[in-house]
Computed example of a mutant assay.
Amino acid sequence: MLAHNQDSLKRTPLYSLHVSLGGKMVPFAGYDMPVQYPAGVLKEHLHARAAAGLFDVSHMGQIALRPKSGKLADAARALERLVPQDIVAIAEGRQRYAQFTNADGGILDDLMVANFGDHLFLVVNAACKDADEAHLRANLSGECIIEQLADRALIALQGPKAEAVLGKLCAEAPAMKFMDAGPHEIAGIKCFVSRSGYTGEDGFEISVPAGDAERLARMLLDNPDVLPIGLGARDSLRLEAGLCLYGHDIDTATTPVEAALEWSVQKSRRSGGARAGGFPGAETILAHFDGGASRRRVGLRAEGRAPVREGALLFADSAGGEPIGKVTSGGFGPSLSAPVAMGYVPTNLSALGTKLFAEVRGQRLAVQVAAMPFVKNTYKR
């Protein structure tokens, strides 16, 4: 049975490269993915913070949204029926973080939306990509041509030396600013490049034709500043950066306001804005903007050295009482040499410095509500 399950896993265009580099392969979102390489999670994490790391994120979904009218504004307005973000205002060559919401204001998925001039380019989460495509087709087929770009890989180059590394292969890369996105040639390969990522570091995400993916990855890895990075370090890097993981920190029962993602909803879509509402769950989400939500995602720092993992219950007191919240992501932060976590607590207990207690192996460990990101981001703005 195990062999059958292993055989049923999908492989990214970089699977053979991972194996040749000694990647430890594990199932993830239906794919056979590297969780780490011989260097190990700790060294991979610290290398991405100090130099540059290369990540295979080809399991993510890539979707082109093309307006049937030929006017991009029509596709942007159509997409605004599904997300609380201002898509019309995304300038050509820029991208924006967004969420698909449901009728209750919960988050179906989070995604990136880029304006490529004649169409919108979407990157969605691996586990949600089929449902996201179906959601788009069910709601936007009248105005848009929805194309899943299944013949492309996606790689991320992250870290303070990412600009110098990519600049040797793409002369335009160093001039890009955080959240710039568009078509660029890298070593003669036609790619889609955004200056963004999931680590809190400066860096780039590169959509590349599947047939060119391994060649491009090897060119980047030929630079001594670049190390391949697996899923393990990708998770610890994004946790230190205070970034949400879909299905853990955000889900269908969590609104953007509860998730502390208010910054991602532009004023034009909020109460009193020129195009306020008009997206699924708007009544609930706008009510949270106006009156606040009862709970909130917060950062947590443990007073000891023991990591507080996902699922740990949170309490207001060191003994007795009912749980007041739960940890949604947690682990050891290698950059800080200390445990970090995030979770949901009642809004009246969400102020920085609030002392709470996390239950770990039957004991309640003191934790404190802390500012995120835990490690200062280095985006080039």
Rank of each mutant, 00 (worst) to 15 (best):
N5H: 14
Q6W: 15
L17Q: 00
H18Q: 07
G23R: 04
K24V: 11
A29T: 06
V35W: 11
P38Q: 12
P38L: 12
L42C: 07
A50E: 15
A50D: 11
V57Q: 09
A64L: 10
A64D: 11
L65D: 03
R66S: 15
S69Q: 15
G70R: 09
L72R: 13
A73V: 11
A75I: 05
A75C: 10
A76L: 08
A78N: 13
L79P: 02
E80D: 08
L82N: 07
P84W: 14
Q85M: 11
A89C: 14
A91L: 15
R94N: 14
D104A: 15
V113C: 01
A114C: 03
A114S: 12
F121P: 00
C128R: 15
K129P: 04
A131M: 13
A138P: 03
N139T: 10
C144F: 09
I146T: 02
E147S: 10
Q148L: 12
R152A: 10
A153I: 01
P160A: 02
K161S: 03
K161Y: 00
E163R: 08
E163C: 07
L166K: 04
D180A: 07
R195M: 05
Y198H: 12
T199F: 08
G200N: 06
D202I: 09
D202W: 09
F204I: 11
V208N: 00
D212L: 08
A213N: 05
A213Y: 05
R215H: 09
R215L: 10
L216G: 08
L216N: 13
R218N: 03
L221K: 00
P224Q: 06
G232L: 00
R234S: 08
D235V: 08
L237D: 05
L237V: 07
E240W: 00
A241Y: 04
A241N: 02
G242M: 00
Y246K: 08
H248Q: 13
D249T: 09
A253I: 07
V257A: 04
A260C: 10
W263T: 09
K267I: 14
R269H: 10
G273L: 04
A274R: 15
G277P: 03
G281V: 08
I285Y: 02
D290Q: 14
G291H: 15
G292W: 12
R297M: 10
G304M: 04
A306E: 14
E310F: 11
L314T: 00
F315S: 01
A319N: 10
A319M: 11
G320K: 01
I324M: 10
K326S: 12
K326M: 09
T328I: 07
S329V: 07
F332Q: 09
G333M: 13
V340Q: 13
V340C: 15
G343E: 08
T354L: 06
E359N: 12
V360H: 04
R364N: 01
Q368P: 04
A371Y: 07
K376A: 15
